[in-house]
Amino acid sequence: MDVTHIVKRINAVFHITNKEVFSRESGITYRADKKVKKLGYCVNLTLETIEEARSRGVDMMVTHHDAWDEIYGLKEACIEKLAEYGISHYYNHLPLDDCNFGTNEILLKKLNLETAKRTHEWEGFYFGRVAEFDKEVDFDELAGTMESLLEEPVKSLRFNEKKVKRVGLVCGNGAPTACLKEVVENKCDVYITGECNLYTIQYAQFQGINLIIGSHTFIEFFGVESLALKLNENIKELEVVRLNEEHYEANIK
């Protein structure tokens, strides 16, 4: 199957309301001149995940993140390596955060939370959620559940003694205090995200809201896996495999 056909199948599962932003936040970064028989998925495009794709015999990678511009020179190095190995690459960022089968929604389902509200809007896309439990749960129990799901340590900071009923979630980088402010305004008991900094922690303490911080990578893994499994269902002749990534972030928190 050719890359163009796979991308059309990917686009078909999204409800695209803003084509301009969708095309800026997703797409092919490198197209190899060969058919795709095996597709590999992971969160990040890095030299290490490209090596993993080569070792697994992958013809095309699907990731949540493109190579980060902030890591100077990485994007060019990745394109060079993809070309060397003849591996195509597609990423889908903001639309996968927004959609009903993406990063936020799938994590909420795994936590047995019901979405109450889509939040954190940017150019018509929503990269956050407010959700609720049927019954209140203990904060430490929720943190433990997150560790089990992500298969890595999480940072949990308690700034109130309440049970958890209402949860604010921003998968990925929800460290900016503007992100936390929206969660506070929605009267959440805890904020779950994939990154934090000093301002995040001090603002949470100031507002008396608990924090659970996973890693940017693995808090978003379930969304890209969901997309890959949809492709697996829709394209029977396509083999789909998970590409392993290291848990570097969890080790430095």
Rank of each mutant, 00 (worst) to 15 (best):
M1S: 06
T4V: 15
R9V: 14
H15G: 06
T17N: 14
S23N: 15
S26W: 11
I28N: 11
Y30K: 07
A32S: 10
A32D: 04
K34D: 03
K37Y: 06
K38M: 05
V43K: 03
N44E: 10
N44P: 00
E52W: 08
A53S: 09
R56I: 08
A67E: 11
W68I: 15
I71T: 14
E76R: 08
C78R: 06
C78N: 10
E80N: 15
G86A: 06
S88L: 12
H93F: 12
H93C: 13
L94I: 15
D98K: 09
F101H: 05
T103W: 03
L111S: 04
E114A: 09
R118K: 08
E123L: 09
F125L: 10
E132G: 05
E136K: 10
E141W: 09
G144L: 08
M146Q: 06
L149C: 10
L149H: 09
L150G: 05
E152I: 09
L157T: 03
F159M: 04
N160T: 08
N160Y: 00
N173C: 02
P176N: 09
P176Y: 00
K181C: 02
K187H: 15
Y191I: 05
I192T: 06
G208L: 09
N210Q: 13
S215M: 12
F221N: 14
G223S: 01
V224C: 03
L227T: 10
L229G: 01
L231S: 01
N234P: 01
I235D: 09
E246L: 04
H247E: 02
E249H: 04
A250Q: 04
A250G: 12
N251Y: 00
I252W: 10
I252V: 15
